[in-house]
Amino acid sequence: MDLPGARGALSAAVISTLTSAGGTPAAAVEVAGHAIRRSPDVLLDDDVQLALFVLDELFYRGFSDVADEWEWDPGLLAVRAVLEEAFESALRERVVVPGGIRAERGAIADALFAMTAPGPGPSVARHVAKRATLEQLREFLIHRSVYQLKEADPHTWAIPRLEGRAKAALVEIQADEYGGGAPDRMHAELFARTMRGAGLDSRYGAYVEQVPAVTLAAVNVMSLFGLHRRWRGAVAGHLAAFEMTSSMPNRLYGDGFRRHGFGADTTWYFDEHVEADAVHEQIAGRELAGGLAEQEPELAPDILFGAASGLLLDDLVACHVLPAWKSGRTSLRVP
């Protein structure tokens, strides 16, 4: 993908470093610290979230015309550490983690199912099913594309950090996410197909420029957990919460696209997830998260924190998108 345009002094410093010949300027860490101090809310800060997104992307597919060596550049890693620390404390301040949960398989799975229980409140899925305009359906896909075109990748990083039952469970889920060996059935590829069906550009990263900070933050939290071994518990919890809040919403997403006359080829991605994630949520809750809590009981709070962080960011995305749509505005960035 192409490097996105800067959204402030920090992302400008990161982006210009990546296109320069020299190393990271020593001042970059100070620029990062300054950006954090003056930010009212790093979760919704375009400059901070874009900078973090760009630094993380070096570990996925990278950017065209940016040297691969930047991935492990000590200067950039130092900048990333400043941003991650601020990101983590913002999450710690906001996230509500249920207390008194035993590090036992059934107790962890029950806690995760309780945290993700469907509520009656306003939801993006219900809006998509019943009311969304064609333009809003496209916006919905654009927001989701930033993650869905690399679906499953951040959680995959945890595989070598797990063992036994929890590892087998994660591999079982991820193998299904990656199409069970068939490239055209990979979930990321099914999503690309849906985008093309809706008349959108399905190339990786094509819409990063258009999504707001909160959409980037929802992806960045997965990279934060996936890139650090110490966050393996959070990866398990995040994935479990993701799977547990997927089957029913995906049925509603599919309904929204059918309502606008799209056929089975375009709704395949959603239909696939109604069935797949009803399987994945069981494996993720009991075998992966529950299994890991029994293997490493000290990770139980991280498992719940990972789940709660994902749910918080989902809520923040909904709080951004729904009011915009209800008042007839775009939920995308207006340059």
């Binding site: 079982e172 299904d176 109604v274 069935e275 994630d277």
Partner: peptide, 19 residues
Amino acid sequence: TTVALCRCGASTIKPYCDG
């Protein structure tokens, strides 16, 4: 490879579970 069969009777994609 792994499938979930509905046990509650309310799934919209029976025999599979849809949550």
